[in-house]
Design a protein around this nucleic acid. Sequence first.
DNA 1: TGGCTGACTTTCG
DNA 2: ACGAAAGCCAGCC
Length: 109
Amino acid sequence: MNTNFFGDVYDVVRLIPKGRVTNYGAIANFLGSRISARMVGWAMNAAHGMDDVPAQRVVNHMGLLTGKMHFETPTKMQELLEEDGLVIENDQIQDFKKHFWDPAVELEI
DNA sequence: TGGCTGACTTTCG
DNA sequence: ACGAAAGCCAGCC
């Protein structure tokens, strides 16, 4: 796990506080320039079935739920985010900037 | 073994 | 301001 960047991604995603969201680029930047934002999304693809990985809190750079289609149901992602207290409209997170959670800043590594 | 794919981001035109 | 293209790396034929 720790050897694979997948594990790092999962760990970061698990650390996302409730009601907060982050984007792929932030995670990629936090893990280091060794990976690209695409790989984060690729890692999330492998996160399927991992209940410990709140992939719904990971969205694209503009707060759009691009990965919702990969969930059990396209609306599942929005429902989960709404349960966290977020406001989703037209598959986009409202006040995304305020709810944005940057691991490189919050974790201050 | 080699090449295509992908839940993205950034920059150039 | 908008559109298109490149860049990145691991997993899967």
